[in-house]
């Protein structure tokens, strides 16, 4: 065994070197991807009730693909993400539903956030973050891309970008 010491040292070194160059060591893969999205229905935040009704969520059947965005008013990346999502929704609202889920937040703070960024895509309120856990979220913001057949196609951790959004759009509308 000792004779092969260079091999052991190189194996250990290789393992660590690989570990060091991983772009995001903390990122945890989602087990939901490729499986049906869990259904839920939650109270809609006040500004959207008129248009979307008292409750909204992921039902058994979907009218169009859903971009499920989990956010909170206290999260900093959500602030740069909000205008991006808004403009995306303005352009593509006939093709996809951008659905915000406000988690672990206070309702007043969430409403202030919505007013500040003038968000028109609907958001539901989930004080405890229960739906986040149902989807297996690891923090905010996080976005789940759900096809019209209610299958989770992708999960995006952290802030979205325009190019990423376009990529996901092509995934739901090939």
């Amino acid at each position: 065994m000792l004779r092969f010491w260079p091999i052991w040292v190189l194996l250990l070194g290789g393992l660590f070197l690989w570990g060091l160059q991983r772009p995001s060591p903390e990122a945890l893969g989602s087990v939901r991807v490729g499986k049906p999205a869990p259904t839920f229905s939650l109270p809609v935040l006040a500004p959207y009730r008129e248009r979307f009704g008292p409750e909204l969520g992921v039902g058994e059947t979907l009218e169009k693909p859903v971009f499920l965005n989990i956010w909170a008013s206290w999260c900093i990346p959500c602030r740069t993400e909000a205008p991006l999502l808004e403009s995306f929704y303005q352009r593509y609202q006939d093709r996809v539903l951008v659905l915000g889920v406000n988690v672990q937040d206070q309702e007043e703070a969430a409403l202030r956030f919505i007013a500040q960024y003038g968000l028109t895509f609907p958001s539901v309120y989930d004080a405890r973050g229960r739906i986040g856990i149902e989807y297996g979220y690891t923090g905010v913001p996080e976005t789940f891309i759900i096809s019209k057949e209610r299958k989770v196609l992708a999960r995006h951790i952290g802030e979205l970008s325009e190019s990423k959004l376009q990529e996901y759009l092509r995934q739901v509308w090939p």
């Binding site: 000792l2 010491w5 250990l12 070194g13 660590f16």
Partner: peptide
């Protein structure tokens, strides 16, 4: 500093085990 410490770790192992071999 991670890479540096990795190099040092491998160096220590190589020195000790190499001599011992």
């Amino acid at each position: 500093v991670g890479v540096w410490f990795l190099a040092f770790l491998l160096g220590v192992l190589a020195l000790g085990l190499g001599l011992l071999a």
